[in-house]
Design a binder for these strands. Structure first.
Length: 516
RNA sequence: GCCCCGUUAGUCUAGCGGUCAGGACACGGCCCUCUCAAGGCUGGGACAGGAGUUCAAUUCUCCUACGGGGCACCA
């Protein structure tokens, strides 16, 4: 048995990739098969090599080990789709020759127009078949003349397609509902649908274990297998990880980057364990649910038919509990090792040392100053008043932003930082200054708000360096967290009230009981 | 709008016709304790609604509601 995961190197390594990867690998190992990693980089605009590297790094951190992949090779490579152009070209030609695909010369404008029209008439937006019956010879000549075009799948318009999903049973789709999918884009690269089917076949994939979002496009894939005369694999559509509001997990509402969890000090074995609890459960001898288990144990008795299909909410509180459980059951020796490794293996370590250095009077001070860089959860706490931008300012001229405005400011910071191609001091500097200018507050006040959001305290190393060192994943998470706090007036109020109480108590302790 | 999937407590789940509906996170209380955690005990809290099938439905079927996903020259 052979399975694969096929992440797309666009952006941060996604926790969903880890989730699907876990089940794929465990399935392969359980059955003594192979687990393949394939990089789906057919989207030229969005794919980056950097992102690809991060995928390897994060999946390896999690503890997943693939038998074949771009980085480790294998007998059915190349494993990067951008390097398989000739294979897709040949496959496309086969379909063109046997009439199951056709060239389409329609412009993007025309397609937009008909889709809009269909939407207006409340119909399912789909290709209208304008080029479907072009003369084959004509079509060939136009293509040879260099006219830009795509290649589309000629979908049957009658009957229905049955997807035999391993978890759901037969799922029927009316063929009339299925679009003539583009297989080859005008840039000559294949779409997911084509590349996926061709590669899965050539890589001898027997079981496709992927996210539920693909279920609806499976009929297209089935049509492709048929067009090629190939045997389709077994399909297993896993439930989607969800935000607290049950929508598909997204970085707006949850940290989705595996890098974030690594940097936040989550143990990979706890993360894997937690993912193994999503839509799945194991039992102990007494028949109760087993909460803690190793990858090996998970793999040993994995049974995909036990997967439950309701979309599991990715609840960080339980992850934290599990992580603590792992931490508490280590021997002190191992714990020390893990902590030191956590710091040592983190490339931020050097950067933190550099920033903290000038503030030290003893080695023991290091921990205090380094805390903001590694801490995972940051309660709003004592410095919360800074989140209302300008409110913490001692300047009389300070422009204060109200709750909504402050929230908008933090969200703007997120958007600008998110868009940075280079996570460098200068780029961060520029982005944050723009955000401050946009908000119309004084530079010091705006940056102070960001500083407190990032470092949790007003006294910290210079902001841009700090942000650079803290890194993208954690920085964005902390800013989003503050934006979310600001979105909930009660929460922030309570936080500030608690903080002032804390402050009063501290002062009381310092100066003795106040006179009656 | 159309198509598809799903629905046990706030959350993760067990259950596959007859159960006091089990476990876990979170939450409350008590205990332990110099604090905080951890730990122990304990409490509240769920089968979305309605028809049907059956001696018997959380479990099977249908309808409704709700949630989600898809409908791209993104994956």
């Amino acid at each position: 048995m052979r399975v694969r995961i096929a992440p797309s190197p666009t952006g941060d390594p996604h926790v969903g990739t880890g989730y699907i990867g876990l089940f794929n690998q465990a399935f392969a190992r359980h059955h003594g098969g192979q687990f393949v990693l394939r990089i789906e980089d057919t989207d030229q605009k969005r794919s980056t090599l950097q992102s690809e590297q991060m995928i390897y790094k994060s999946l390896a951190w999690l503890g997943l080990r693939w038998d074949e992949g771009p980085d480790v090779g294998g007998p059915f490579g190349p494993y990067r789709q951008s390097e398989r152009g000739a294979i897709y070209a040949a496959a496309t030609q086969t379909l063109l020759d046997n009439g199951t695909a056709y060239r389409c010369f329609c412009s993007a404008e025309r397609l937009d127009a008909i889709r809009q029209d269909q939407r207006d008439r409340k119909e399912t937006p789909r290709y209208d078949g304008f080029c479907r019956d072009l003369d084959r010879e004509q079509s060939r000549l136009r293509a040879e003349a260099g006219q830009t075009h795509v290649v589309r799948l000629r979908m049957r318009t009658d009957g229905e397609s049955i997807v035999a999903d391993a978890l759901r049973g037969d799922v029927a789709f009316d063929n009339k509902q299925i679009d003539d999918q583009v297989l080859l884009k005008s840039d000559g690269l294949p779409t997911y649908h084509l590349a996926n089917v061709v590669d899965d076949h050539h890589m001898h994939i027997t079981h496709v274990i992927r996210a539920e979002e693909w279920l609806n496009s499976t009929p297209k894939h089935l049509a492709l297998y048929e067009a090629f005369g190939w045997e389709p694999p077994v399909f297993v559509h896993m439930p989607l990880l969800r935000n607290a509001d049950k929508s598909k997990i997204s970085k707006r509402k949850n940290p989705t980057s595996l890098e974030f969890y690594q940097r936040a000090g989550i143990l990979p074995e706890a993360m894997l364990n937690f993912l193994g609890l999503m839509g799945y459960s194991r039992k102990d001898e007494a028949g109760n649910d087993l909460e803690k288990f190793s990858l090996q144990e998970f793999t040993d008795d994995l049974d995909l038919t036990r997967i439950s299909l309701g979309g599991p909410v990715f609840d960080l509180r339980k992850l934290d509990w599990l992580n603590g459980l792992y931490l508490r059951t280590m021997t002190p020796e191992v714990l020390v090792e893990r902590c030191l490794d956590f710091l040592r293996e983190d490339e931020r370590y050097q950067g933190v040392a550099r920033l903290v250095q000038e503030r030290l009077t003893s080695l023991g001070d290091f921990l205090h100053h380094a805390e903001p860089f590694f801490e995972s959860n940051r309660p709003a706490g004592l410095a919360a008043r800074h989140f209302l931008v300008g409110s913490g300012s001692r300047k009389k001229t300070a422009i204060k932003l109200n709750r909504e405005q402050s929230q908008a400011f933090f969200e703007d910071c997120v958007t600008r930082l998110e868009g940075l191609l280079q996570w460098s001091h200068d780029a961060i500097d520029a982005a944050l200054r723009q955000a401050v200018a946009q908000a119309g507050v004084q530079v010091g006040d705006g940056l102070m708000a960001v500083r407190v959001a990032i470092a949790g305290r007003p006294a910290a190393p210079p902001l841009f360096e700090t942000v650079e060192v803290v890194g993208r994943a954690l920085t964005l998470h902390r800013l989003r967290q503050v934006a979310n706090w600001l979105a909930d007036p009660q929460f922030l109020e309570a936080e500030i009230a608690a903080a002032s109480q804390e402050l009063a108590a501290a002062q009381l302790a310092l100066h003795g009981a106040a006179p009656e």
